[in-house]
Design a protein around this nucleic acid. Structure first.
Length: 416
RNA sequence: GUGAGUGUAGCUCAGACGGUUAGAGUAUCUGGUUGUGGCCCAGAAGGUCGGGGGUUCGAAUCCCCUCACUCACCCCA
């Protein structure tokens, strides 16, 4: 019985790693332009951290966490909580007034895997702490759009406001009344949701529910003056930056800490999972974790969802890493000479390889071709005696005679 | 946690009214040149037909159980 990876846990093979590195390099480039710094965090935290930040009643905390029950330690289901913990623990507010931080790494949720959803998955998590400016909201959205654009992907942006502790309770009560009047016409899930999280009824996919709630009271009409003003300013700032978006009054987020602005970049090509990048504002979170009263906003990008999109868009030029030189040795004596030469060539900074299997020249040439070698040095008995060997340019098929010396080989390769 | 679908070579899949030794493409290896790659040709190797049980003279094929995976619901990146 072969040992296999756990369900929901995936190996990322070399061909796919090419895509991952492309995504990470584009992301780092964009983030640096927006003056973000990287932070690296542990994957295991006290369980309490997630219960307090994400919310004890959320699905994530209630049924999806990998927890060592005896130790009260949990593999992180997302990064924002960890990042805020680090922010508070190291008093990062005292280092600079506004902290722009990002982190990339694995997250763990014990859900049933499906397309675009794994139990170990990877996120780029971006957070800004220390500013409540609506311009920051817009800037962050513009950055998300830039990231997707530079990856050659298109996704549409939807935004909403969830209000704040001042206005949400009143709206919630209003919505609850609206739902109560037509509870008998809503699906089973929705009647459950009306108790656990009424806002979520708005988000139901069931067509009859959708029709029933189509003219439900909109939170945007019931925001307090401050929240309404914030949303207006975010929209104005987005327009100033030329960022397309649409308001989605039905969009709800599953984490308790979100207030005011929430958003999603959605794609229609991901199966049932449409969000590639989502987040929102979380003023109050830092304070609730024992830190100073600092506003914050951030988003997470689902990296395997980006990989999925890139694969579908067929922009994949999966050219594996190539080498500068392949050493083809014929016979034991040549093999020994090449073995030493190979090491010297690598020390000189070239990417090089050879075969130890004592195969035919033809076979070694094939190998070199597959490895994407730019040059092949062919060494047999005669070459050993002469101290020189033919070096073939695999692209032009030209061969030049070079000394069996790493300096000579290096400069011959530099000349082409 | 719930529902549906799929398990045959490393990968993608044929084969299904039960009937010789389970196939193809691709990838791998060898050869077609005493020592020269891509294309082409020939050959080799590669399988507990997911596993277990049953029906039968005979099961990849029919029945039951089980496991795994996939998609979807819930929820989320």
């Amino acid at each position: 019985m072969k040992v296999k990876a756990l369900n929901g846990f995936k190996d990322i093979l070399p061909d796919e790693v090419v895509l991952w590195r492309r995504i990470e390099s584009v992301a780092r480039s964009v983030l640096e332009r927006f003056h973000f710094q990287e932070i690296r965090l542990p994957v295991l935290e006290r369980t309490e951290l997630f219960a307090r930040s994400i919310g004890a009643g959320t699905d994530i905390v209630e049924k999806e966490m990998y927890t060592f029950v005896d130790r009260q330690e949990t593999l992180r289901p997302e990064a924002t909580a960890s990042l805020m913990r680090a922010y508070v623990e190291h008093s990062l507010h005292a280092v600079r007034p506004v902290q722009r931080l990002f982190t990339i790494g694995p997250m763990f949720r014990r859900e049933r895997p499906q397309k675009g959803r794994l139990r170990q998955f990877h996120q780029l998590s971006v957070e800004v702490v220390g500013s409540a400016s609506p311009r920051l909201d817009a800037e962050l959205l513009a950055m998300g759009a830039m990231l997707l654009e530079e990856l050659g992907l298109s996704a549409s942006l939807e935004i909403n406001s969830l209000g704040c502790p001042a206005c949400r309770p009143a709206y919630r009560a209003l919505l609850l009344d609206f739902i109560a009047e037509r509870l008998d016409r809503l699906c089973d899930d929705c009647s459950r949701r009306s108790i656990t999280n009424p806002l979520r009824v708005l988000d139901c996919k069931n067509p009859t529910c959708r029709a029933e709630v189509a003219d439900a009271p909109s939170i945007q009409q019931h925001l307090c003056p401050d929240c309404a003003d914030h949303l207006d300013r975010v929209r104005k700032a987005l327009e100033q930056l030329g960022i397309d978006y649409c308001l989605n009054k039905f969009m709800v987020r599953g984490l308790d800490y979100y207030v005011r602005t929430t958003f999603e970049f959605v794609s229609g090509e991901l199966g049932a999972q449409s969000a590639v990048c989502a987040g929102g504002r979380y003023d109050g979170l830092v304070e609730s974790l024992g830190g100073p009263a600092m506003p914050g906003i951030g988003f997470a990008v689902g990296l395997e969802r980006l990989v999925l999109l890139l694969q579908q868009h067929d922009t994949v030029s999966s050219s594996g890493p190539s080498i500068d030189l392949f050493l083809a040795a014929l016979g034991d004596a040549a093999g020994e000479r090449c073995f030493r030469l190979l090491h010297e060539i690598r020390r000189a900074g070239l990417r090089a390889d050879m075969d130890y299997g004592g195969r035919s020249l033809k076979s070694q040439m094939k190998q070199a071709d597959k490895a994407g070698a730019a040059h092949v040095l062919i060494v047999g008995e005669q070459e050993l005696a002469r101290g020189r060997a033919p070096m073939r340019n695999m692209m032009s098929r030209d061969q030049v005679d070079v000394a069996l010396d790493h300096d000579a080989i290096h400069s011959a390769i530099d000349r082409g």
